[in-house]
């Protein structure tokens, strides 16, 4: 089922992929959390998608070296992160749990992270990181007084204070308001453009749609799909697509379309024709010929369900 739909995104500057999994699996007793997952990632932002319990966090923890794979290999920057602390020089980690040292101020927390990374200029690095997440105003308040979103940003600042090559974020947008979310997405995009590898997990699809054109979809511990989500969608030919069509005469076009075997259903709606079909590429030709045959002028063709949510929905239900 884990047909790799597209070749993994190949990034320009790094020769070896920053993240590489080969047949990686992890089980707890007889519960399999991650099952035979293989992929590799270079620079860029990748969204790790899946419903709760799909194994996203387990996967991220394996990448962060906090879990050894039960089978297969996990490599970050060519090294196995488990039991090799030196690799953390190049990894930034934002765990899901909200816990932070509540008695430290935001600035102290980020600086502490910088110092533990061995930065000589932890103070200025901390100030830069705080500014990048837009937390300057609250930097001198104890984290215990922060809102969820602020805490989340402080965690991100702490994770990128040492300018890591690889950034792993577990549900980083939790608790952020839409504006903060946009800012954080822009920040991740910027970092990706600078040649870093960013992998973040999420179960909220609009987040991924906005910044991560590359996605990995996990369902029940397995990698269900990977690649550009629109391409994945197009390749899932066994799934009915819904397309909305505007034309000069919807009713007339509908009768013509119904004659074609590739069309399952046609529904007349106030805002156009809703057509369900199996093959998107075949359907494009059909629409063209049908319009000609019915002598109807085609105004607009919209893929009605081309959102990540529907892709995801479909994968999860399969």
């Amino acid at each position: 089922m884990t047909a790799e739909v597209l070749p993994a995104p190949v990034a320009a500057p790094v020769a070896a992929p920053a993240i590489e999994l080969a047949g990686a699996a992890r089980w707890y007793g007889n519960v399999v959390a991650v099952n035979d997952v293989s992929f590799s990632l270079g620079a860029g932002v990748t969204g790790l998608l899946g419903p709760n319990g799909a194994g996203k966090t387990t996967l991220l923890h394996m990448l962060a070296g906090f879990l050894a794979p039960s089978a297969g290999t996990v490599r970050v920057l060519g090294r196995s992160p488990h039991r090799d602390p030196s690799v953390y020089r190049q990894i930034g980690l934002v765990p899901e749990r909200e816990s932070v040292y509540s008695f430290l101020t935001g600035f102290e927390y980020v600086r502490y992270n910088g110092r533990l990374q061995g930065l000589a200029n932890a103070d200025s690095a901390a100030r830069v990181a705080i500014a990048r997440v837009g937390l300057e105003d609250a930097a001198d308040r104890p984290i215990g007084t922060y809102s969820k979103g602020m805490r989340q940003r402080a965690k991100v600042a702490g994770a990128l204070v040492h300018e890591p090559q690889v950034l792993l974020l577990d549900e980083p947008f939790n608790g952020m308001d839409p504006r903060q979310r946009l800012a954080m997405m822009d920040l991740l995009g910027e970092m990706a453009n600078a040649g870093r590898t960013i992998l973040f997990s999420s179960h909220i699809l609009e987040e991924v749609e906005r910044i991560g054109t590359e996605i990995l979809v996990m369902v029940a511990g397995r990698l269900a799909a990977s690649g550009d989500f629109r391409a994945i969608r197009a390749l899932m030919t066994d799934r009915p697509h819904t397309v909305t069509i505007h034309s000069s005469d919807d009713r007339k076009l509908a009768t013509t379309l119904m004659a074609d075997s590739a069309v399952f259903a046609v529904e007349l709606q106030p805002n156009g024709l809703s057509v369900r079909t199996a093959h998107l590429s075949a359907f494009r030709r059909i629409v063209a010929t049908s319009c000609q045959a019915a002598q109807v002028r085609l105004l607009e063709v919209l893929p009605a369900d081309e959102s990540l949510e529907s892709v995801f929905d479909y994968l999860v239900r399969r």
Binding site: P240, A304, D305, S307, E309, S310, D313, Y314
Partner: peptide, 11 residues
């Protein structure tokens, strides 16, 4: 698939 069936806008 749910998206196509939403009719809230018209009601």
């Amino acid at each position: 698939m749910s998206t196509a069936n939403r009719v809230t806008a018209s009601s």
